[in-house]
Simulated assay, not measured.
Amino acid sequence: MVPELGIIEGFYGPMWSWAERRELMTRLQPHGYRFYWYAPKADRYLRRQWQLPHPPAQARDLADFARWCSDQGIAFGVGLSPFEVFNRFDGDARTALAAKLAFFESIGVSRLAVLFDDMQADTPDLALKQGEIMAWIQANTAISRFAVCPSYYSDDPVLDRVFGQRPQAYLEALGKALDPEVDVFWTGPEVCSKELSPGHLHRVGAALGRKPLLWDNYPVNDGDRMSRHLHLRGFTGRPAANAGLISGHAINPALQPTLSAIPAMTLADCYRLGPDYCYTQAFVTAAQEVLGSELANQLHGDLLSLEDAGLHRLSADRKATLHERYQASHHPAAREIVRWLEGAYQVTDEMVQTQ
């Protein structure tokens, strides 16, 4: 059994082009990827300045991509982060939300995610207020498929340290406050979980009163530390038995769209093959499909440098050797590696704090 698979473009840092989004989904759709959530942190009209309308050119691009997804049979969703709206859900907030919902409807959004992640959340009755906001949204739009990202979307205590102590029984309260048909994103025991076990998903599902929708933070590589590494290897720690315990599996991709396709393909194999899945062989097969045999073999041989060592631990000589090696190829994945070696994908703390 393979769950519904898709992309949640929810990373910090430089944004992709629309052509890159189309290319990624064209590669992944044959592997079972059926939905795409557009929610980059750098789109300020969805987050820090969500009350403002998208400029006309950006609105047209969004509408064009929504139409393209519809033509391809891909469900297109948008992730709206109404920044700290739960602290003042007043008339002005409702007016701004109504305008944003009307815009989403006009461009063909079929799924809407309301993302309460990565913002200060030490608010009394947090879950009840978020449930109230979602109920209002559902009553004021023709969009019929919804998801929520909780303020505390993982068991990871780092969220409490950064955004305030989570309320007691927050997940249980949120589950009761939400319509049963609303999906709830969950990243697992950690923000970037090494393993997602059936036992963990059983517990979270019981707390929420519904199967969680996985927001899988692999192969994402945003942030100051992670952006120094390329996440390329096949998925591990996602047993096929999870399929019946989740409402879907969305992966947050890496900053490099072409390279992201490689691990994404292995996730489909992980579910499809079950106990016969081999993550190393799945990587090789996916890399050959995306890159061709020669470049795939080259990438396989350089995994220790690109994924494990990372930019900060590469010597100047090793970095120069890799740069020359991949500069010789015109493949878009090779160009992504060259740009990464040149520091073009470095995500700073300032980006994370201001996007």
Rank of each mutant, 00 (worst) to 15 (best):
G6A: 07
A268G: 05
M15P: 01
L214R: 04
E190L: 05
Y277P: 00
N217A: 04
A139F: 03
S247R: 15
A57M: 12
L273K: 12
L303F: 08
L255W: 02
A127V: 03
T95S: 14
I246H: 08
P30C: 12
G292S: 06
K100T: 10
S106E: 09
S193I: 05
G248N: 11
V85E: 04
L213F: 08
G32W: 05
D71K: 13
L314G: 11
C278T: 05
T123D: 06
P198H: 08
T280A: 14
Y12F: 15
Y170C: 05
Q355M: 09
H31T: 02
F83L: 11
N217P: 02
G108C: 10
V220F: 08
W136M: 09
F283H: 12
Y326F: 12
L52M: 04
I251P: 00
F104H: 03
A309K: 15
L62E: 09
V148A: 04
E9F: 00
G244P: 05
V148N: 06
W50A: 11
K194A: 11
P219M: 14
A268I: 05
P53E: 08
S154N: 03
A282L: 03
G209R: 14
A147N: 07
D183L: 06
T348M: 12
Q168L: 12
I7T: 05
R44D: 04
M351W: 13
S247N: 06
L304T: 05
A286Y: 10
R111N: 09
M25W: 04
P157A: 12
A282I: 06
L28S: 02
G73A: 10
I246A: 08
K41P: 04
K194C: 01
A261E: 03
I74Q: 09
F83N: 02
Y36D: 08
Q58I: 09
A57K: 15
R21V: 07
A286E: 08
W136I: 02
H331W: 02
F86W: 11
A169R: 15
S260T: 13
A147M: 12
P14T: 13
V284Q: 14
D125T: 01
N140H: 15
K319F: 03
M25F: 01
A207H: 07
E172N: 10
D122M: 00
I7P: 03
A57F: 13
Q29V: 00
T280W: 04
P275T: 09
L208M: 10
S106I: 02
F104L: 14
E324P: 00
I74W: 05
L311E: 07
V114T: 02
R203K: 13
V184P: 06
V162M: 14
R44C: 00
L171D: 12
P257F: 00
A334V: 04
L178A: 11
D179N: 15
S144M: 01
T26D: 10
D117T: 13
I74S: 05
Y152V: 03
N297G: 15
